[in-house]
Every structure is written in C-alpha cells, then in structure tokens.
Amino acid sequence: MPTINFEGKDFFCAEDETVLECMTRHGVMIPSSCQSGACQTCMIRALEGKPTAEAQQGLKDTLKAQNYFLACVCRPDGDMTIGLSTVSPKYRVSLLEKEALNESVIRLRLQEPDGFSYKAGQFINLMRPSDELTRSYSLASMPGDGFLELQVKRVPEGQMSNWLFDDLQIGDEVEFFGPAGDCFYIPGSPEQPLLLVGTGTGLAPLYGILRDVLAEGHTGPIHLFHASLAAAGLYLVDELRSLAAGHEQLHYIPCVLHGDAPEGGRQGNITDLPAEVLGSLSGYRVFLCGDPPIVNALRQKCFLAGASMQAIHADPFVFTPAPDA
C-alpha cells in the first residue's frame, strides 16, 4: 500500500485509489474539477517518488520534467511525497563581475553555489541582504558556465535595479532562492524548428536557452528575435552575430519598433514579426520571454500561426511598480 506524504504527514493510499481520492478521504481538499484527467485543476507535484505515466498524459514536457501530475488520475505504484513546491535553501553568494551591456542593461555574474542545480531559462529570486527586498531575475547562464549570470534593466524608480546598478560592488554579497520556472529546453526532436522571441531583458533567459540548445546539438533551424523600442535598447548584438556565424542553423533577427533596424534586422511590431518572417509556425517549439502584454499577444499570434499550445513556452516578466513618491 503506497504512502503519500503531504506537508510532513503520511496518508495511506488504498488499492486502486487515486491520489486525489486518497487525500479527499483523509480530509485534505486538493482543488479539483473534472476528475478525469482533462481540466488540470488538480495538478500537483511529486517532490519525491515518480508519478505514473497516465497521470502525466497531456501535460507539457516542461511540467512532466518537474514531476507535475494530475492527482485525479494518479494511482500511485510507490511511495510519493507531494506538494506544490520544494522549499529552496537560501544561497548567499558574492558578485564576481559587473559590466554594462548597453545604456540601461547590466550583466551581473554571481558565484554559483555548490550543489545548485538549474535549467537554462529558469529564474531566481534575488534578495538584498540588508532589508530582504526581493525581485525575480532570469538566469542568462547555463549549467557548466561556472557562474550565474543575470541581465538587469534599470527601472525608473526601481528599488532593486537602481541598487544593483549604483551600489552593488564586486565582492559584495547577495542572497537568493530558487531556481523556478518552466520555460526551458528539453532535449529531444533535434530537427524541430525553434522560435525564440524576447523583448528587452527577455533576452536573458533566451540567451541561456539558446546556448543550451546549441550545446545539446539541436540541428533544426533556430530563429531568435530580440526586440526593443529602438536600436539603443538591443544588446549582445555582436555576441549573437558571431554565435550565428558559427552555427548555420541559427538565425538572429534584431528588431526595433522605431527607427532603423540593425543590419539583418527588422523594423515593426514584434507581435507580428515572427509570423511575417517565418509564415506558418506549425511544428515549431516556441519560447517567449519579456513584457507580459507582449508575451501574451505573441502567445496568441504564434498559436494562430499554427504552433501547438503544448509547444509554446512563455515567461512573462513581472515588473514591480515603484513605490508612490
């Protein structure tokens, strides 16, 4: 009889009972609706133990990889610990490098703590040790780099970004929790065409994902669109150009809304450009990162252009508004 551990308590699962039925019988009310594996309301995560294949049917690959499953159709074949998330240890690391990438974006490289494990494209919650001010930043590095890289845009009146720009010095310490996020590349289908679209520092997770994709030996065409209001907002242009020069399957398209686009780039609205340039997106795997309204609009455009909902991975950034002056 498998044991289900939830929040430190053990519950015995009867034969042929689903995780949802077991928890309900013990008074643990997991939200649920269809009870047939369709609506995904009861999605929960196996923190230890493996969910059954049936309980992961229809979930995105990125969720499967993190052991998410549907409690209503999971008849466990072994002990499991379930919950929504693991409690991350708090890491304390020092700043190794700080460099301006353009007028408003800096690159920070942090020590990678021992035993820290992440997937390129995930994010961390960075904390200012003096007052625990916390903000989420995507990782632009990939495992094996030997450091954690963040790309930070200065937000007018932004408490964290201004502190990172103006006060944080090399050797100073910051803290963080994480990693989290389900916008990352899972090896497989190496010939599948990929579309990566980022606005502003939405390039950060895509830069990690892109290098991960290349390291995994992806052979299908890879189209990276990086968009900014104007050319001055783009960054890593030379690095991306030389990366594209070394990999014939990689196409880098810098995009601007206003003014002239750099060589090989496009001028226009980023929500329209990918489908305009590529036509049908049927069969594509898509990664979208950056401002939420643009990411949401892109998600719809890419879907309407033929990308399957299951193949669209999105990470809308949330910007914390400045406190009232």
Binding site: C34, A38, G58, R299
Partner: peptide, 27 residues
C-alpha cells in the same frame, strides 16, 4: 489565460465525445 482556456476546452471536447468526465450543467 490561454492555457487554462485550452484545458477547459479539452474538458468540453472530452465530454461531448463521450470520454471520461464529470461535467455538469451547473458548471
């Protein structure tokens, strides 16, 4: 939210095709 909406449509299509579901008129 497009993903939540797609999940609801999956529930709906499962129901109208006679698949396993617990859809009710009240829902």
């Amino acid at each position: 939210d497009m993903e939540k909406q797609a999940a609801k449509q999956k529930g709906f299509l499962t129901m109208v095709t006679g698949g396993p579901n617990n859809y009710t008129g009240k829902d």
